[in-house]
Design a binder for these strands. Structure first.
Lengths: 115, 115
DNA sequence: ATCGGATTTGCAAAGTTCTTCAAGTCACTA
DNA sequence: TAGTGACTTGAAGAACTTTGCAAATCCGAT
C-alpha cells in the first residue's frame, strides 16, 4: 500500500483545485446537470484551449467526468458526494462573502468618516 | 465605489487561500479556540518564518485575527461566519475524502485484477 | 541601557501554475 | 478519403507562490 496522504494535505489539495475562477464557474454551471463543452465555452467566454486545460485539471482530480456524445463532449460533476459538497460549499461561501462585503462596506464608511 | 469583484472570483480566491497544507492545519487548530503562535509552531513543526508568512496570508484576507498578549502573539479565527464556514467545509470535505479513498481503494483492486 | 526569546518582515531562490500557440485526435459529412 | 468543426494535448514562457535566511521589532527581565 502506498503511504496514506495526510488528510489535511488532501483537503488543501481539494481547495486548491477549487481555487481558480474558471474552475469555479465550470462547477457552478455543472451544478444544474451535464453540459456540453460548447455551452461552457459560450458562458465562460475564454479560449477553447484554456477551458480545456482547466477541465483537464478537474477531470484528473476526479471532480468531473466527461463522455463523448457524437461530435460533442459532455461534462458532469462526478459522483453524488461531490455534487453535495459543491452545493454546500456554494451556499456557505455565498453567505460568507455577502457577510464580508457588508463588513467591507462598513469599513469603507468608517474610513470615509475618519478622513 | 470600486468595481465589484465578481462573486465567482471572490470564491475562487477564498478557496485558493484555504488550499495550502499549513494554512489548513492552522485553521483546524484554531477551530477549538485562540492559540499562541508558539503552540501552532510546536504542532505544525515548520520554520517560524514560514509559519509567520502563512499566518500573514490568512490575516491579510481577514480569515484570522491576532493580538499580542505580553510577549506572545495569539491568533484566532475572525468572525462567527468564518468559523461556521470552516466547520462545515471541514465536515463535508472529510466525508468527501473518505468517500474518495474508498473509491480509490476499489479502483486499485479492480486494477490489480486486470493485471 | 542591554539582552534574549518570540514573532514578523524583506528578499532572493526554487517551485508551481497559468496562458497561449501550434499541432493532434475524433467523428461527421461531402 | 479529404475536409471541417469540436475538443484536447504539448510545450514554452510569463506570472505567481512558497521557502528559508538574515535582519528587524517588540517586550519583559537583568
Amino acid at each position: 500500500m502506498s503511504a496514506p496522504v495526510p488528510l489535511y494535505q488532501a483537503k488543501a489539495e481539494f481547495f486548491r483545485i477549487l481555487g481558480h475562477p474558471v474552475r469555479i464557474r465550470v462547477l457552478e454551471l455543472l451544478q444544474d446537470g451535464p453540459r456540453p463543452v460548447r455551452d461552457l465555452l459560450a458562458e465562460i467566454g475564454i479560449e477553447a484551449s484554456s477551458l480545456s486545460q482547466q477541465l483537464g485539471v478537474l477531470r484528473r482530480y476526479g471532480i468531473v467526468v466527461s463522455h463523448r456524445e457524437a461530435s460533442t463532449v459532455v461534462y458532469e460533476i462526478a459522483g453524488g458526494d461531490i455534487a453535495e459538497l459543491m452545493r454546500t460549499a456554494r451556499r456557505i461561501l455565498t453567505e460568507l462573502l455577502v457577510g464580508q462585503s457588508e463588513l467591507l462596506a462598513e469599513l469603507r464608511e468608517a474610513e470615509a468618516v475618519n478622513r
